[in-house]
Amino acid sequence: MPRYSRGYDTLEADAWLARRDRRLGTWIRRLGAIEPDPRWRRSFDPVDALARAILYQQLSGKAASTIVSRVEAAIGDTRFHCDTLGRVDDPTLRACGVSGNKTLALRDLAAREARGEIPDLRRMSVMDQDAIVAALVPVRGIGRWTVEMMLMFRLGRPDVLPVDDLGIRKGVQVLDRADAMPTPRELAARGERWGPFRTHAGLYLWRIADSVNEAKVPTKRSQE
C-alpha cells in the first residue's frame, strides 16, 4: 500500500509549471517563488481541523475566532473531538454564538469520530485524495472545498485543484486574459497540463487574482 508524503518540492513544481505553461511561468517569475508551507510538517487532528472549519464558515475571521475561543473555554480544552464536545450541551454552544446548523454539524462530526468513520493522520497517509474526500464529505457541513483546503494546506498533497473556487477561477481568467471566468469543467480541463502539481498552480492562481484585485491583505484560504 503506497504511503503519501506530506508536502512536495516547490522548486521542482515551479520549474515544471513554467515548462508546461508559459503564461503561468511568466507570472511565477513576476510574483516570486512560493515557499513550502510549514503546516505540512506539523501534526494535527483532522477532527479538530474540521470542527474549526465548520465554526469559521460564513463568518469573518475575527467573529469566528471569538466564537472558537468561547467554545474552547466552555469545553475546557483547545482541541475539539468527540469527548471534549460531549462536555457541552446544545444551549451552551448556542450561548457561545454557534448557530443551530453548526451545532448539528459538530454533533454529526463527533458522532462519526466516535464510530471510527473519520480517518486520522496515520490512516490518511495511505489514502489517496479521492478516498479522503469520500470519507469526509458525508459529514454534515463539510463540502468538497473544505476537504480540498485540508489536502492542500495541511496534508501537502501536490495535485489538488479546487475547480469550484472563485479565486482560482478568477486567476485563470486573468492568466488567459479571458472575458469571463472558466466554468469548473473548463478549469478542470485547463488544469490537466499542470499535473502532477495542480496544488502549486492553484496557489499561484490565488496570488494572481489577489494581485489584480490589489488586495492589501491576501485572502485567507484555510484556518489553523
Rank of each mutant, 00 (worst) to 15 (best):
Y8W: 11
L17E: 00
I28M: 14
A33K: 13
P36M: 10
W40V: 04
R41E: 15
R41P: 02
V47I: 14
A49K: 11
R52D: 01
A53S: 15
I54G: 01
Y56F: 15
A64K: 09
A73S: 13
T78F: 09
T78Q: 09
C82G: 04
D89P: 05
L93N: 04
C96L: 08
S99D: 14
G100I: 11
L106M: 04
R107I: 02
L109H: 08
A111Q: 13
A111C: 05
E113N: 00
A114V: 06
L121I: 10
R122A: 15
R123M: 13
A135L: 09
A135N: 12
A135D: 08
V139I: 15
V139D: 00
R144F: 06
L151K: 01
M152N: 05
M152C: 04
M152K: 01
R154W: 09
V160Q: 02
V160K: 04
L161R: 09
P162G: 15
V163F: 03
D165L: 04
I168P: 03
I168S: 04
G171N: 13
G171A: 02
V172G: 02
Q173T: 06
L175T: 04
D176R: 13
T183R: 10
A189S: 11
E192F: 04
P196D: 06
T199M: 00
T199E: 11
L203T: 02
V212S: 05
E214G: 10
V217F: 12
